[in-house]
Amino acid sequence: MKLEVNGVNREVRSEPLTPLLDVLREELDVTSPKAGCHAGGCGACTVMVDGKPRRSCLIPVAAVDGASITTVEGLGTPKDPSAVQQSFIHHYAAQCGFCTPGMVVAATAYIDGGGSDDKDEIAKAISGHVCRCTGYTKILDAIAAATKQTEFDITIIAPDPTTVTIGGSE
């Protein structure tokens, strides 16, 4: 099987019924989609399949053979985040961050579909996404602001992976 993941063609060798989520995380090392509930109820595994947001935990990979898959890694980079990613940073819309990849994908799909800054409409659009930190207000603010495609003056806080030391000391 083949997938185009964030613009790169990848061969897939997993079994045909393996959830797309597991293929992305375990075989292709694309780890932004999160395994929250594995039952379609939390939204943390949401990715774009041919431009539409879908729950990757509920999709057998054979069902999307040949499809284009986009995760948050494909929406922007730490040095060049998308408007939604900038807005999430600017509004401090991530707390623990576990739900954030799914939220960003859903928000991007909502805005790409012509969604407005109406908070009720945004709440409907992300109604399948659970934030257990319950930081919904800032998430709604971030998505509403992102609908205006504003460029935010943000300080990129993502660390340079080449300089991060975990558990060590200088």
């Binding site: 019924l17 959830p19 594995h38 039952a39 379609g40 509920l58 999709i59 057998p60 069902a63």
Partner: peptide, 14 residues
Amino acid sequence: VIAGGTIVMQLLNY
């Protein structure tokens, strides 16, 4: 039978 997967895949995952 698996069509959309929203019912059966949950059962397979667990």
